[in-house]
């Protein structure tokens, strides 16, 4: 009884090879996937609104204006000209228009770490950004718990996500990398299962999202008193804040690659499989 169940095609037999349709994604996977898309989008954009209130990241227990920030978005003024800058360690790059200084709805350059199109709300409003962030954080956590719980109960985790020993051999992983790099995607029987890079990516992003929740909670002074071990786990509130930002950035990188793979592997078939669960298996090359 596998999740990925082959179903006989309803079409009459003909000489041409039949289109094989399988039931690829269970309902809970599809529902939690789309709830997650909504939550992550809102959490990301409201999170960038919150970042705009103090766009500098520190390591350790404390960090404010006079302490060393390893990453900072800011603006300098050269005569009448506003220049947006991003500093990572000792490297400073000019990022006018995107980070540090960008144009608002009036077309004027303003001092602003993240641009208006990336934040929720678009205008600077920390209070409302926090309202969005914490409402959807609750929904995100509940949705995540449903996903993890259902993955354990249904066997989705062990059956579809945990790589088998033979898949973890360096040769196998390298071959998968090479195939992906040449945009040569699995076909036939191989396409019915996640390949090892997919397994790694989906397990990895689940871990990133869990880290986002834990580092988010570590920024709460209330949670710090209730669960002080979180502060030790992440090395302090400001470290947790920095890890929160890094994990969010890595999740964005995952989404970019994930969407690129969907487009390259056949967007209609892939997106349909995440909506209806039905997936047309790409036929083997003859």
């Amino acid at each position: 009884m596998s999740e990925i169940t082959a179903e006989p095609s309803a079409e009459p037999a003909s000489e041409r090879p039949q289109k094989e349709v399988i039931y690829r994604h269970k309902l809970f996977t599809r529902l939690t996937h789309w709830v997650n898309v909504v939550c992550f989008t809102i959490l990301l954009m409201s999170g960038l609104q919150i970042l705009n209130a103090h766009p500098a990241l520190y390591w350790g227990q404390f960090g404010a204006d006079d302490d060393h920030a390893f990453l900072q978005f800011y603006a300098t003024r050269d005569g009448d000209e506003l220049i947006g800058r991003t500093r990572i360690g000792s490297l400073t790059i000019e990022t006018t228009g995107l980070f540090g200084a960008s144009r608002g709805s009036d077309g004027e350059l303003d001092v602003r770490a993240m641009p208006t199109w990336a934040t929720l709300p678009s205008i600077r409003d920390l209070a409302t950004g926090r309202r969005w962030h914490f409402f959807f954080a609750w929904l995100f956590v509940i949705n995540g718990l449903v996903y993890v719980g259902a993955s354990l109960v249904t066997g989705h985790l062990w059956r579809n996500l945990i790589p088998r020993a033979r898949e973890l051999r360096p040769g196998h992983i390298l071959r998968d990398f090479w195939d992906h790099a040449r945009l040569k995607f699995p076909k036939g029987e191989a396409a019915k299962r996640y390949n090892v890079l997919q397994k790694g990516a989906y397990l990895g992003v689940t871990l990133l999202l869990a880290l986002l929740v834990l580092t988010g909670l570590t920024m709460s002074p209330g949670i710090n008193a209730a669960v002080p071990g979180l502060l030790d786990l992440f090395g302090g509130r400001q470290s947790a804040r920095s890890i929160h930002f890094i994990c969010a950035s890595l999740t964005v990188a995952f989404v970019v690659i994930h969407l690129a793979m969907v487009v390259l592997a056949g967007p209609i078939n892939e997106i349909r499989s995440m909506i209806t669960g039905r997936y047309v298996v790409p036929p083997e090359d003859k």
């Binding site: 970042l51 103090h54 404390f62 920024m219």
Partner: peptide, 12 residues
């Protein structure tokens, strides 16, 4: 103790 501003910074 650590003082945490709503803006995101902290000071002890």
């Amino acid at each position: 103790t650590r003082h945490d501003c709503v803006e995101g910074w902290s000071a002890i």
